[in-house]
Write a protein that binds this DNA or RNA. Sequence first.
DNA 1: CTTCATATTTAGAATAGTTCTTATTCCTTG
DNA 2: CAAGGAATAAGAACTATTCTAAATATGAAG
Lengths: 142, 142
Amino acid sequence: MVSNTDSSEALAQRLSDSGLRSTPQREVIYSVLLKKRDHPTAEDVFARAKPEMPMISLATVYNCLETLVQCDLVRAVNFERGPTRYCPNLRPHAHFHDEATGATHDIELPPGMLDQVKAVLPPHFDATSVEIIFRGKAPSKA
Amino acid sequence: MVSNTDSSEALAQRLSDSGLRSTPQREVIYSVLLKKRDHPTAEDVFARAKPEMPMISLATVYNCLETLVQCDLVRAVNFERGPTRYCPNLRPHAHFHDEATGATHDIELPPGMLDQVKAVLPPHFDATSVEIIFRGKAPSKA
DNA sequence: CTTCATATTTAGAATAGTTCTTATTCCTTG
DNA sequence: CAAGGAATAAGAACTATTCTAAATATGAAG
């Protein structure tokens, strides 16, 4: 389990690696993402951050999320037309979108799976990232 | 190569299978998608359809594209935040998004690849579709 | 510990893409 | 040909996001 302090430090480290500052807003937003990993939208994050930091603005939430994505601490995921969702899971994983409930589940991938998928690329296609999205029905209890 | 007549008939067939009508607008939009398979946006399709049918409205383009998607004649693809793109390729394939040019390439998948990917799902996850999106650099001439 | 330059935040306006609403037109069937 | 449902057109409305400008905070340099 990651303690709050540890993740703050990790955040500060990543930010300064990129020449960025650690700010209270960025910390709150990152902690919100870590606390409930249900792939929230920017609006969701805004709502969850507000109790801890009432003056925070939605624009800041967007800014911070974008910053976290650029530091590789958070992944942005887009399902169809809806709002972008944010995910602090850094391990290689796919996403399963439950069409009945709208919920999104992380699917851990066995090591090598992404390389195996990349192997289908024709010569000279150089992929920096692979995203796999399943759609269907997830087990009800999961 | 698919003749215009053939694709019109295929379209009419698919539509009536779903209890929908074949209309001039739907035919033009489908033919626009078949003619240039560069994953156009709705606005692109609108612009390409207008010369053939000057009175067509953007709302109709959206309606028809949605209809075609529901008939399984067209796939809608979403890369990050941008507009939805449309693809008339019905064979199992992945998409490669060239980050330098913004172009999208279809990547044909070997038979069985999708099942292989589905095999990573834990029990009771039942996927109706799998989408694979690569991002990176494509060969310049492709 | 000030001062300066810059990074960040805020609030609200602006924008892009899409969906909705309403009226009209077009088929299809009786 | 009349009625009813399906489809289209035009533009308003909406949602998610980005932009803009001003205020604030931060870190570095003296």
